[in-house]
Amino acid sequence: MLSCKDVSKLLSDRLDRQLGLMERVRLRMHLVMCTGCSRVERQLGFLREAFSGFVKPTDRE
């Protein structure tokens, strides 16, 4: 059984590399029953979004 710490590492890794099949299956199983990790999943996605727009048009002189 993966812990929330393990799952958060996979959620982070997923933003940098393609996960293997078993990693994806175990991740999915955990996320279905874990509210905390589901929130973290959305929030790490939001963090990426925040940085993709971090350099604002106003910074472009």
Binding site: S3, C4, G36, R39, V40, R42, Q43, F46
Partner: peptide, 13 residues
């Protein structure tokens, strides 16, 4: 490996 404090829901981030 569980959260020391539970991640909260962020409303309309």
């Amino acid at each position: 490996g569980s959260y020391a404090s539970m991640p909260q829901e962020w409303r309309n981030p």
